[in-house]
């Protein structure tokens, strides 16, 4: 009952159209990063504590971002911005550091060399995510929706 009432007036979710593709790619990346981070921490955490802690942090942020993109409403929207912004910052800072001073990150993190180990998806995805978020601000939904938007 309550679900119906929420759904009926307007589709307040971002889970439509090409946005769903974005969410799926985020989900896959979150899954891959979590799995890899789990293996790193379970088997060789003492070899590179900083790198593997970063991997775990990145994995959690990817999960949060995926959930935030699925969720509707202003607070999820803000969380999506925060998590995606954090990823953008992470991939740029760690990516640059790993090139400038490879000794800092002898072991791979998801963000090393701008996400090379993940086909550069960690670099491209936050840009697409932010573009998507600017196009789908929660306030815009009070205006009648553009078909196919």
């Amino acid at each position: 009952m309550t679900e119906l009432q929420i759904d009926k007036p307007a589709r307040t979710t971002r889970v439509t159209g090409v946005g769903r593709l974005l969410i799926v790619v985020y989900g896959v990346l979150a899954l891959a990063a979590t799995g890899r981070s789990f293996v790193q921490i379970a088997t060789k955490f003492d070899q590179a504590e900083l790198a593997y802690t970063l991997s775990a942090l990145a994995a959690m942020v990817y999960i949060l971002a995926t959930v935030a993109l699925i969720g509707s409403g202003g607070s999820w929207y803000r969380l999506a911005w925060v998590t995606i912004g954090f990823e953008m910052l992470g991939v740029l800072v760690i990516g640059t550091l790993s090139l400038v001073d490879p000794a800092l990150f002898p072991h791979d993190t998801v963000w090393s060399v701008y996400g090379r180990g993940y086909l550069f998806i960690p670099l491209v995805l936050p840009v697409l995510g932010m573009w998507w978020l600017t196009r789908h601000h929660p306030v815009m939904r009070t205006i009648p929706e553009v078909p196919g938007g």
């Binding site: 593709l21 799926v24 789990f38 293996v39």
Partner: peptide, 29 residues
């Protein structure tokens, strides 16, 4: 361990995508 983490992750993906494709039938699915 790493091998099976990949394998199990991979096993989860097609059913999830297939389920989504059944729920919302459009080009993006």
């Amino acid at each position: 361990l790493e091998f099976y983490v990949y394998l199990i992750s991979a096993l989860l993906l097609p059913p999830a995508a297939g389920f989504w494709a059944l729920v919302e039938r459009n080009r993006w699915s």
